[in-house]
Amino acid sequence: MSVDAVTREFREFFNDKPTLVTSAPGRLDFLNTHQDYKGGLPVVAVGINLRTYIAISKSQGEFTVASGNLRDDNVEYVDKFSLGELKLLGGKWFGDYVRAL
């Protein structure tokens, strides 16, 4: 995957160009997961050769989230919601990660 590939997939899905495309390296936490950004105990973190890519654009209250990985796995990969009706769906629904932000 690359920034160009994510941009292309975004255009294909939404018929528009993204406002922002970004990427972050993956990492594994071996000890004290989530404590580093909470100011807690030291964390043993190791970088890995995987990345997360995100493409976004402005919305007018209705949000649509699509996962390219889930699409490639032939499972439900689109979540739509509005801030006025924001609730977690549970059951390991991928959209809950975005809804909880």
Rank of each mutant, 00 (worst) to 15 (best):
K87Y: 14
E62Y: 00
E62C: 07
Y37I: 13
K38I: 09
S23Y: 02
F10L: 05
T52D: 13
E85K: 15
V65L: 15
N69Q: 10
E76H: 10
S82E: 13
V65S: 13
N74V: 08
E12N: 15
T7A: 04
A45C: 05
V75K: 04
V46L: 14
G68W: 02
R71T: 02
D73H: 08
F94C: 01
V6E: 03
N32Q: 05
T19E: 14
A24M: 04
D79L: 02
F10A: 05
R27N: 09
E9G: 00
A5T: 00
T22H: 07
V21I: 01
V75Q: 02
A5I: 01
Y53M: 11
S82I: 12
M1L: 09
E9R: 03
G84K: 13
D16P: 03
N69W: 03
S59M: 13
G40A: 03
R8F: 00
L41V: 09
D79M: 06
A55L: 14
F14E: 07
D36Q: 03
A55C: 14
V6A: 08
L86V: 12
D4A: 12
T64L: 06
V98Y: 09
R8N: 12
Y37L: 15
L41F: 05
V46N: 11
G39H: 12
L31H: 15
P18E: 01
T22S: 12
D96V: 08
G91R: 10
G39K: 08
G61K: 10
E12G: 11
D29P: 00
L31E: 15
V78Y: 07
Y77G: 01
A24I: 01
V78I: 07
S82C: 14
F14K: 05
D16C: 00
D72N: 11
V46D: 03
G91P: 00
S2I: 07
E9Y: 03
F13M: 06
S59V: 13
E62I: 05
W93Y: 10
